[in-house]
Simulated scan of single mutants.
Amino acid sequence: MTQLPHHRLPYAIQADPDSAHGYGEGTPMPWWLRGGHAQTIIPARFTRRPPRVGFRRERWATPDQDFIDLDWTTHAVQADTPLVVMFHGLEGDSGSHYAQALMHALSLRGWQGVIPHFRGCSGELNLAPRFYHSGDSAEIRWVLERMRQHHCAGGRKLLVVGISLGGNALLRMLGEDGSGAAYVHAAAAISAPLDLAAGGAALSAGFNLVYTRMFLQTLKRKSLAKLEQFPGLFDRDAMLASRDLYAFDNVVTAPLHGFADTDDYWRRAASKPVLRDIAVPTLVLNARNDPFLPARHLPGPADASAQVWLEQPEHGGHVGFMTPPAGWRRHLPLQADGRFGGHIEWLPARILKFFDSMM
């Protein structure tokens, strides 16, 4: 197994011949894409995506009489290749830009991928009086143990990716289980909000409220539907009055999932305190200009075990990491089709390069 340098903090940005800034290893970003907000929004909304990946949906009954939906890739799978499980971010799903990019990269290799949806994120409201949350290590554990039993027999390697909220929940599970999670061959957490209190505070001020309002639109809609299932489950008026995630979590997320309040939830669900306990080779990638988590709250070498690779490039935004097109088109912000020039293929390539080094 090839060992990568541990705890590169801050990540060494290597100069590219055509760019003074990038993501390391000589990889540039578009010269015109400046600032964490642009590097978050444009890759997610306004740039070219890989060809859309097809899925086969499977439904699993959960131990609490609920269900989750999993989307499996349908491309041809090469023999003796690993299974890659990806847990999505807050209000994400298998159609999210990062999910499509990673699954497309797997299709080019002939590797199988699967995206388990958190409760209520597959397009159909779940049945139990609960949703999902940033520290839902029990759900991650249940899914991965079932993957091991039914899909990774005979030595097939299990590789796991968590994006944003899914990354935090994955890291919680890996830290809580320590060596007990050794059936996971390697893992990667991308743009995980490792310090939930710091991230929550960041999302409650300034331009970041744009992201918060976007999340609350769908969270409130689901919450109203949940109240139709379970009248009186929480305070409807207080939920509708919430203007940030702190207020929403105080009314809905925390009490529905066994926490006293938002402060208790964010403290107990944060993954940064358990990075020291992770025993599985794990890449933890956070851009230092991610609007969702200020760089001063990112972990340092003393915060993580020897099995954790900390990578913190100066640029990338929140699950952005956009790179320019090839040739002369890299100099043009807008392309002929009206989209911003660039692609989002660096991130899946980085994840798979890390996994390759662990094989």
Rank of each mutant, 00 (worst) to 15 (best):
A101K: 04
H104K: 04
A105C: 11
A105H: 10
A105K: 02
A105W: 01
L106G: 10
L106Q: 13
L106D: 13
S107F: 05
S107L: 06
S107K: 11
L108N: 10
L108Q: 15
R109D: 08
R109Y: 07
G110H: 04
W111F: 13
G113D: 08
G113C: 13
V114P: 06
P116Y: 09
P116V: 12
F118I: 03
F118W: 13
F118E: 00
R119W: 02
G120M: 05
G120H: 11
S122D: 15
S122C: 12
S122W: 10
G123R: 10
G123P: 11
E124A: 11
E124G: 02
E124H: 12
L125I: 08
L125F: 06
N126W: 00
N126I: 00
L127S: 10
L127F: 09
L127V: 12
A128P: 02
A128Y: 15
A128N: 13
A128C: 13
A128V: 13
A128K: 05
P129C: 12
F131Q: 03
F131T: 12
Y132Q: 04
S134W: 14
S134Q: 15
S137P: 00
S137N: 08
A138P: 05
E139S: 14
E139M: 15
I140L: 00
R141C: 09
R141W: 05
R141D: 13
R141K: 11
W142S: 04
W142M: 04
V143M: 05
E145S: 12
R146M: 05
R146G: 01
R146T: 09
M147D: 04
M147W: 14
R148N: 01
Q149R: 15
Q149L: 08
H150Y: 12
H150V: 13
C152T: 08
C152Y: 05
A153P: 03
G154I: 10
G154M: 07
G155V: 02
G155Q: 09
G155H: 09
R156I: 01
R156S: 00
R156T: 02
R156H: 02
K157I: 00
L158H: 10
L158P: 12
L158T: 06
L159A: 04
L159N: 07
V161L: 01
